[in-house]
Structure formats: C-alpha cells, structure tokens
C-alpha cells in the first residue's frame, strides 16, 4: 500500500495519537446534548478524512467489516435496559420487553461507536503500525506493553503461517473418516504450535541478548514536532472544547439553519 504523502501523514505520530485519542475520549465520555453534536463530530472526522486523502471506497471497505461487530454488541442493549415498554415480543413463554430508553441508548451507543471506528479506520490509513508503536513509546507508554504489541505484530503472521502449514500437512493425509480422532489431531496441532512458540520465544530472546539487550529498547528519536503539529493539535483541542462546552449551542448563527434537518438526522 503506497499513498501519496498527505498532510496527515506528514504529522508526527504522537500528534496523531494524541488528537485521535482526544476526539474518541470526548465522543465517548461527554454526554451528547443534542443530535447536532454528532453532526459536529462527524464534521470534524470528515475534515480529518479530507486531510488524509483516503478515498471513501477504502474507508467503506474496512467499515463494512467492522459495523456488524458493533451491531452485534449493541443489539442486546434494548433488551436489558428497563423503562417504559415500547414494544414486547412473546416467544413461547419468554416475554421480552424493549424499553423506549433502551432504544435511545442503543442508537446513542451505535452512533458513538461507529464514529469512533470511522476515525480509527482513517487513522489506520495514516499511521503505519511501527510508527504508531514508536509514537506510543515516545509518549512514555508502559514499555512492556509497547514491546508486547510489537512482538505480536511481528509474529502473529509467522504463527498463522505455521498453523496453516500444520493444518495443510494434516489435510493432505486425511481422507475423511474417524471424526472423533480428528479432535485429538487438532489437539496435537495446537500443542505443537504452543511448544514451537515457546521455543521460538527462547531463541528470539537469545538473539536479543547476544545483541546487548538488557531490558530497555532504545530508539532513535527521528520524530520532531513541527509548527504544523502544534497547529493541528491546538485546532483539534479548540474544536473539541467548543463541542463539549456546548458553545455551538449558544452561538446563534448555527441555529439559523432549519433545526428540523438536524432532528431528522
């Protein structure tokens, strides 16, 4: 994947991590006073998307994969929230009540998480994983956690490949009988994978200590904050403060638009 350098890509990874994290935190933690606030968040994300020059198609492709997960998790909310019954379903003896408040919460959480995911998808196009890790490290994130993530990123594919090879070796010699025994074989494969991973970890550790590893991961600091980073970060913070403090509500000129449009959203 190669993209032409967009403005967002030229930003320091730390700037991106901080600002995206701030947006998501604001989106999740602060009570949304009106539907219009979602619009404002969406606007902000739209601007970021434009700056990143990621095509809508790329974003949609990833989003479509993720939306079902959100739906699946949030779908259960209406059934558990208590309140004024809006709709009740009878399945045999089971009676399910869907509360009015439940539906409201469902919509709220669904929109919030979709917006967050949208932002994360855009972020994933503008920060490479290794830059992301380096950024985290320079932000003094717990080193152990960063190292763990880095090893996971490095070896998850190696492990998957190994599992695939083992499964393939099994399947070319399997002609479809003795179903019960197959579970045993799959157990063996999992066991072998575990042992190999364990031994590989030992070898990797050897390779690390022969190169002078003593618990610290020094890195060349190749990132620098530029004026542009400061500009980007401060404008994000200012915009978020406006939304959170509800200042946009008080500003009359935004209300001039037909409020029905916002409510229809």
């Amino acid at each position: 994947m190669k993209f032409t350098e967009s403005i967002l890509e030229r930003l320091d990874p730390r700037t991106k991590i901080i600002s995206f994290l701030l947006i998501i935190l604001c989106l999740i933690l602060f009570p949304v006073k009106s539907v219009k606030d979602y619009g404002l968040f969406f606007l902000l994300i739209l601007v970021i998307a434009l700056l990143s020059r990621v095509t809508p198609k790329q974003i949609l492709k990833k989003l479509i994969l993720l939306i079902p997960f959100i739906l699946f998790i949030t779908m259960l909310i209406p059934f558990f929230k208590e309140g004024h019954t809006y709709w009740s379903i009878k399945i045999g003896k089971l009676e399910l009540d869907i509360a009015y408040e439940g539906i409201q919460t469902f919509i709220k959480i669904f929109i919030k998480s979709s917006l967050s995911i949208l932002l994360i998808v855009i972020a994933s196009f503008t920060i490479t994983f290794s830059d992301f890790l380096k950024g985290l490290e320079m932000l003094h994130f717990p080193r152990l956690l960063v190292m763990l993530m880095s090893f996971m990123y490095r070896y998850i594919f190696v492990l998957l490949d190994e599992a695939k090879r083992l499964m393939r070796a099994r399947s070319i010699r399997y002609f479809g009988s003795r179903y019960i025994e197959q579970f045993k074989i799959i157990g063996y494969i999992i066991g072998i994978l575990f042992i190999r991973t364990f031994e590989r970890a030992e070898k990797i550790y050897s390779a690390m200590i022969t190169r002078g590893f003593n618990g610290e991961v020094p890195c060349i600091k190749c990132f620098k904050f530029s004026y542009f980073d400061i500009l980007f970060l401060s404008s994000i913070i200012i915009f978020l403060m406006f939304i959170v403090s509800g200042l946009f509500h008080k500003m009359g000129y935004l209300n001039i638009n037909n409020p029905n449009i916002w409510q229809a959203l």
């Binding site: 890790l133 880095s150 490095r154 070896y155 190696v158 590989r200 070898k203 990797i204």
Partner: peptide
C-alpha cells in the same frame, strides 16, 4: 533462522 533474528517491526 532469520525469523528469530529479525524481531522488530521494520
């Protein structure tokens, strides 16, 4: 095995 020697992201 180079997979054990190369353990960093890049």
């Amino acid at each position: 095995s180079p997979d054990e020697q190369l353990f960093c992201p890049t």
